[in-house]
Amino acid sequence: MTTIIKTHNLSKKYHHRWAVSDLNLEVLKGQIFGFLGPNGAGKSTTIKILLSLVSPTKGKYELFGNNPQYKGNSIYSRIGALVEEPDFYLYLSAWQNLKFLADITGNISKTRIDEVLDIVQLKDRKKDKVKSFSHGMRQRLGIAQAILGKPELLILDEPTSGLSPEGIKDTRELIKRLSEEENTTILLSSHRLHEIEQICSHMAILDYGKLIVQGDVSSLLHETDFFITEIIIDKPEDAMKFLLSESFLKKMTVSGEKLKIHVSSTRRPEVIKKLVEKNFKISSVIPRTSLEDYYLSLIEKRHIK
């Protein structure tokens, strides 16, 4: 698979603080790559480096196999980006703002401008000055300018921030559609963990500028034994002893009628089958798996360290 984004020990120092430190990231073609981390983790700085808004202190990066630092900015005609809150020329209309950007990007027709305004449902407000737009409308216009040039790579920093629930849903659907129909590679930075969980195929978690984990969402969430599955069972103590002797499971606890086991979702049916075959009476199986749990746990661990 073609590598679209690759960073090699990418680092950025502001005064005495490393905002990004030795970051090695790889995003392949067609992936929807979630970029997670608490405030100040270095997500926006990384995105700004990739977009040449900020120069790295050390390390390097490649976009489509080229380093924009040496190859020039022509590569950015293949990229659409929304960095933090979009800021437009307030004294210009939505259409004029997009026309400016279309002129610079090149090969974008006026019809395409209308098309993207239609996608983000701003076509009927296209002649209004941006200063009259609400935060959500500006955010939608930000998405419009990002997809204006039908980019091969879309970099979105908190794209659903400030949007209404309807707008959030539409944006998610748009991201999925772009990925599925146009095979657009998407780097999505978000605080909304369930958003990443729902739409991303891969993800990376950053904290204090360092990469904590990187991989495909499915593996990270379902093939690890990080998550707890709660089983309400008739003899939890006996069930625990049985499982410890019979199976691969090592981590489990009992709390009342609940047997809490650490198991990946892929191996969960196997465990249930063993218990049923041993005539344990199971009344319910509750998987406690969410990206939120995973994320918070990783961040917590790092902070304790």
Binding site: L53, N73, S74, E84, P86, D87, L101
Partner: peptide, 11 residues
């Protein structure tokens, strides 16, 4: 903040 949308173009 308008540089953010302006300078992320092929210019």
């Amino acid at each position: 903040g308008t540089f953010r949308i302006f300078l992320t173009r092929p210019v």
